[in-house]
Design a protein around this nucleic acid. Structure first.
Lengths: 155, 155
DNA sequence: GGCTTACTACTCGGATACTGCTTGTCCGAGTTCAGGGGG
DNA sequence: CCCCCTGAACTCGGACAAGCAGTATCCGAGTAGTAAGCC
């Protein structure tokens, strides 16, 4: 039960794209920014494109660009784009198998175990959806020197 | 990012042990209850023993027994026992690698990305810790016939 | 000199191997119970 | 009749394979810029 490291890569890369200023930035530069594998980062960025968080510009001087402002991108958007299905607990309905299935073959009500786990996961998802990348960027902006350095490094 | 199915197995088995009445129940019977692989279920139950949620009685007529009442077992206890480390997001501190590392080699403050993800996970863990198995059992007790059937099946 | 055209370099995008964890299985150590033999 | 001993059956416990998702990599398709050639 470990989240893919692609999520961390995607989050930092989205922030870097914002600090870059809006112009398209190539995959190679974005990877070099954090010493990542360029080809694998590309895979993650393609997922972000598919989720319509990024737009890709092919050809020379192409690259990736934010599809919308950071204030319109939540943590849940990023996690969902990279991980796909964000459900942690998958109920296999084992309560209807084996001897328990003989007792109650057709589940008349929802599984209480599943319901409890879903409640907890909803709290997680709501917390993810409540935080936008703009808020994280605001934290980074408390040290403007870094933001400026990133900007020059990517331009 | 999928939770081990051992969590579902453990939750249902703990509830079954409660309905069994307190006497030790063998691993084979517990597995047959839901048509599970007995040997693999045993692996999960050993984790619960190590977490002190269950006690094991060796020898003939032995088995597993709840170490404490359901009202003192939370969902977080079970998830933590099976999954071990319950942190979903592992920050690799990539902000200090590559060219970004040249800008800020020594992180003076906590990583805002990590902090945001941890906040969301804390909401999840709190929601897990807030729900006990006794509350789930209360839902099941709304149909006493099933609880009785499980009791007789395990005795 | 200006326009067309072919070439090159660079980009994204999907198809292809490798690794580690989850899942599943097996066999051994230990304990309890039952039955038989002896006192 | 009671006690002891031996055996067997059953249990847990850890060590040993198979499958699959995550990880990493490579190569092809496409586009923009550039430079040369032609009008």
């Amino acid at each position: 039960m470990r989240m893919s490291k692609g999520v961390e890569w995607a989050l930092h890369t989205l922030l870097n794209l914002h600090m870059a200023g809006g112009g398209p930035v190539g995959n190679g530069q974005l990877a070099a920014m954090h010493g990542l594998s360029a080809t694998y980062l590309n895979k993650q960025l393609q997922l972000l494109v598919k989720a319509e968080l990024l737009t890709s510009i092919p050809g020379a001087h192409g690259g990736f660009r934010l599809a919308r402002g950071l204030e319109r991108i939540t943590l849940l958007d990023v996690v969902q784009a990279i991980e796909g299905d964000v459900r942690l607990f998958h109920c296999a309905e084992i309560r209807c198998c084996g001897r328990a299935g003989e007792i109650e073959p057709q589940p008349t009500e929802a599984c209480p175990v599943k319901a409890a786990m879903v409640r907890a996961e909803d709290a997680w998802r709501q917390a993810l959806a409540a935080q936008t990348l703009a808020e994280i960027q605001a934290e980074l902006d408390r040290r403007p020197a870094i933001a400026r350095a990133v900007h020059t490094a990517l331009n």
